[in-house]
């Protein structure tokens, strides 16, 4: 019985850890942006090109990862799309003259560096960087 309890506890621990680790996506922004809290719908509007200004009127510069599990998890969690649908959305915008897609990066380190150095930038990562001064955006 004790083995079962231990096994159940271990399984629960591993599952919760795995879920927490794989699903945790942090929205990060340049440390000087005026808004430290955003609604999920605002994130969606930012990444679909429908919201382009912070509350003080400065330009929002959204950036994305080119691909990978962090990118897939982000578009799924905040945009209710898969990576392919997100890509198609921006192809449509580009080829119909409705907008330009967010700048994209190969790695999270490159993305974080850009967010850190670019006023108004917003991005995401699977971890909170300690080496770069960025703000974590709380999502309501």
């Amino acid at each position: 019985m004790r083995y079962i309890k231990n096994f159940a506890f271990m399984a629960l621990f591993l599952a919760s850890g795995a879920i927490g680790w794989s699903a945790e996506i942090f929205v990060l922004a340049n440390k000087n942006v005026p808004d430290k809290t955003l609604e999920r719908e605002s994130i969606e509007r930012i990444y679909l090109g429908k919201k382009s200004q912070w509350s003080d009127g400065t330009r929002i510069v959204p950036v994305v990862l080119k691909s990978g599990p962090t990118h897939s998890a982000f578009v799924k969690k905040f945009l209710d799309r898969d990576a392919s649908q997100f890509s198609t959305f921006w192809k449509q915008a580009v080829f119909t003259g409705r907008g330009m897609p967010p700048k994209s990066f190969e790695t999270e380190a490159e993305l974080i560096e850009f967010v850190s150095d670019t006023p108004g930038a917003i991005g995401y990562a699977s971890f909170i960087p300690m080496s770069k001064p960025v703000s974590r955006i709380a999502v309501k």
């Binding site: 509007r45 429908k50 382009s52 200004q53 198609t88 192809k91 449509q92 119909t96």
Partner: peptide, 30 residues
């Protein structure tokens, strides 16, 4: 020119909105 999120202006030759898909009708990949 996007002045605010709620107001922008486009000038020139602009794809015409008709239904959800007219603007991308020539773009097969969509």
């Amino acid at each position: 020119y996007q002045w605010r999120d709620y107001l922008g202006v486009r000038v020139g030759k602009i794809k015409l909105p008709l239904g959800f898909y007219n603007q991308g009708r020539d773009i097969d990949m969509l």
